[in-house]
Design a protein around this nucleic acid. Structure first.
Ligand SMILES: [Mn+2]
Ligand SMILES: [Mn+2]
Ligand SMILES: [Mn+2]
Ligand SMILES: [Mn+2]
Lengths: 223, 223
DNA sequence: AAAAAAATTTAGATTAATCTAAAAATATTT
DNA sequence: AAATATTTTTAGATTAATCTAAATTTTTTT
């Protein structure tokens, strides 16, 4: 049933899964190459291999999409990744900007039992430290509704539930500004000129650029 | 300073380290091949590579030994392995016969910070679930004195401190008999004919074969 | 609908890790 | 000290993952 895949194969599946969410449909060779910092010709080779293993559907020049089996594998790796991130933050006191690269390694540890034990140990978390949903053991992913803070309306109150950019720099910037998952903010003013926002958070008023606001995903609290 | 090694290279270093303890000196190509279930010709190739990286000393036909740098790397992998085994048993409720293969994967996760955090989280354990010492962060390994129960004397009392065979079957057998690390036993009788032992443990009297007694390492408690 | 540009695939190499079979060196036995 | 056996190395292939450069297909522009 489940054959053993190399780390590389697993990373390709994960990349295709991640890109599929945006493109809705099939994913292009060049996009995969970009995502994995490799060359399009390498991608073509790997795609053929994954197609042979029935993990992706592939027609020359037409892009790829995950099969049910491929998606299942990809989701299970994402589940591992996010559970390990929770472990690192909650149990080993890592900061949220320090865990991604370690999780990239840990996600490939191949054991369903381990994953389930870890899940239980962490008390079945639903989201990782960056607000991303943790797929359940059947591969279902709870999709919370959210919108970029950039689309917010003045005077309304929002809860920060996810970050769309998990780069060290962005996360450290948020720390510095006191912005974190779960915090409540109110939009005071939006500058027409550059779309920067004046927001109120923890009773302090701060300014954030449009770029930052685009990467903060929020849920409305009060009209 | 520390280059990145492949899992394979790390496994060779670990194998050489482990074999060095018994042979006291240099390790032969065939022994390494046996240990790693590979062929002598493959070992020769890899040894050359490790020698180029200054991780082993090697002279054709004369066997290999670890350099200081090679030993340091090997010990750090062993440290990881044993810390992860403790984690799996203490925190995730795995049994001592279920953790080795997972630790074989986890030991290669490459992060000093992770290792130190894990060590702290586990409250600085000194031994793994099989009684093997956990090297400290400087690579020092505490060597407790112990002897095989097979060498024990009648009437004396011993504490079980380590197992010399960590195979699933042996560990499960010990579970079944109620034999575990830390337990105290008294040797009642040794059968001259086959060297089997009659021992008293937890107020029950049980019989164990010489083969079992050879793989139970004990420390004397009372004359 | 041609021409030009962009995306994708193929052809041919390279590197790591492995293997089998043969050659060479070392160790053991007579 | 020869002969034999064992161990170790070399030679030559193979497989996975990658690359560059060239060829092909698709898309976009004119
Ligand atoms: Mn991550
Ligand atoms: Mn995350
Ligand atoms: Mn082990
Ligand atoms: Mn152990």
């Amino acid at each position: 049933m489940l054959e053993t895949l190399s780390f590389t194969e697993e990373n390709y599946l994960k990349a295709i899964f991640s890109l599929s969410k945006k493109t809705e449909g099939s994913v292009s060779t060049n996009h995969i190459a970009d995502k994995l910092s490799t060359k399009p010709s390498s991608v073509t080779d790997m795609i053929k291999k994954l197609a042979d293993k029935m993990l992706v559907d592939y027609k020359k020049y037409q892009g790829v999409s995950l099969t049910r089996k491929g998606r299942k594998t990809a989701v299970s790796i994402v589940r591992n990744h996010r559970l390990w991130e929770v472990f690192l933050v909650e149990k080993l006191n890592f900061k949220w900007d320090e865990v991604h690269d370690l999780a990239e390694q840990l996600e490939h540890i191949n054991s369903d039992v381990l994953t389930e034990r870890l899940d239980a140990f962490l008390d079945y978390p639903t989201h990782d430290p960056h607000g991303d949903p943790i797929p359940d053991k059947n591969g279902n992913i709870e999709q919370r509704k959210s919108e970029p803070l950039a689309n917010s309306e003045i005077g309304k109150q929002y809860e920060i539930i996810r970050v769309d950019d998990s780069s060290d720099n962005f996360l450290k910037y948020l720390d510095k500004k006191g912005i974190a998952i779960g915090k409540i903010l109110t939009v005071i003013h939006k500058e027409i000129f550059d779309n920067s926002l004046e927001i109120n958070i923890d009773k302090k008023q701060i300014l954030i650029t449009e770029e930052v606001a685009k990467n903060l995903l929020v849920r409305i609290k009060k009209q």
